[in-house]
Design a protein around this nucleic acid. Sequence first.
DNA 1: GCCTTTGCCTAAACCCCTTAGGCAAATAAT
DNA 2: ATTATTTGCCTAAGGGGTTTAGGCAAAGGC
Lengths: 189, 189
Amino acid sequence: MVRAGLSTARLVQAGAELADEVGFDQVTVSALARRFDVKVASLYSHVKNSHDLKTRIALLALEELADRGAAALAGRAGRDALTALANVYRDYAREHPGRYAAAQFRLDPQAAAASAGARHSQMTRAILRGYDLAEPDQTHAVRLLGSVFRGYVDLESSGGFSHSAPDSQETWSRILDALDTLLRNWPAP
Amino acid sequence: MVRAGLSTARLVQAGAELADEVGFDQVTVSALARRFDVKVASLYSHVKNSHDLKTRIALLALEELADRGAAALAGRAGRDALTALANVYRDYAREHPGRYAAAQFRLDPQAAAASAGARHSQMTRAILRGYDLAEPDQTHAVRLLGSVFRGYVDLESSGGFSHSAPDSQETWSRILDALDTLLRNWPAP
DNA sequence: GCCTTTGCCTAAACCCCTTAGGCAAATAAT
DNA sequence: ATTATTTGCCTAAGGGGTTTAGGCAAAGGC
């Protein structure tokens, strides 16, 4: 009987691919077992349970996103950096909808602490080096940018902006313009 | 044999309450049947299937939110209106986390068209009457506000802003300040 | 070549979803 | 008031997904 060569890493990788194909919440231990042509119970030596599997896929997606973000930010500043990072999130969500959904999986504090979450906020904060913001405004701005990226990408992917003019791409550029302007003229309390 | 008095409306209402108690994705036909002390199959005369149930809960939440929004906007303009509507979303998410999650349930075009979705964008657009924005900037601004509301509330409820200074309430006010400023000084292309 | 570890399996229990068909309560017709 | 009809909830049954316990055989260490 030839072995399938399962491992936690391979399961998580395949789970991420499966997510992109059928949606993150259709990622199931059973579906994954089918994909490896293996009995369901066999996966339980490599993954604690279904929740554990999803958590690992989420962590993978967060790392991938952080890697792309870091690459995009390298050598850029100001508006350039802002646009680059924003597009990383938006493009990733378009290319890998399942993984992007996974990245929003609610992690328990345990997993959240071990995630690339901190890298993400650091990247956003790095963008603000190109603007003149002291604390606590810097943190407010980090949170605003995070909210816009997340909110816009969610709404766009759920079809909120399709079938109506102007097209989403134009709004996206104009919103990034607006944020750039806002960061350069951040209002005093 | 005394009847339980089921109806679609009662099921949806109870489903919404259940969602707030245990989370929207824990809302299941079985759990709802238990709550009415009735056999699972009995629900299928009132609700097509699990997806239909969730869709109806989502529609309920969207209506409730729109009603609250309309009430909050009445008699307000400008920054006041902006703050009022923004707080409707944030407060609703805090008071009714399950319903709020339901409101983000991906509706099929069918259901989306029959939902209060249009009311929501109209309310946001109404806020902009207090600012001087012509199309297409008005639409860009509507989408920006929608993104911020959605993104901020999501991130906050997933714990993204807890355990770190400054506290979330302060950031929220400052972000609304910033948006108000931005809308009054919307940059030309 | 033997032994230990590891990997995948079978078996079984539990929960959720959904459909088909039946009986009885509530409601309408006579 | 009695009958006829509709409606509401039930039992039965099949199909998945999750998870644990325990077994056999393949890989790898000696």
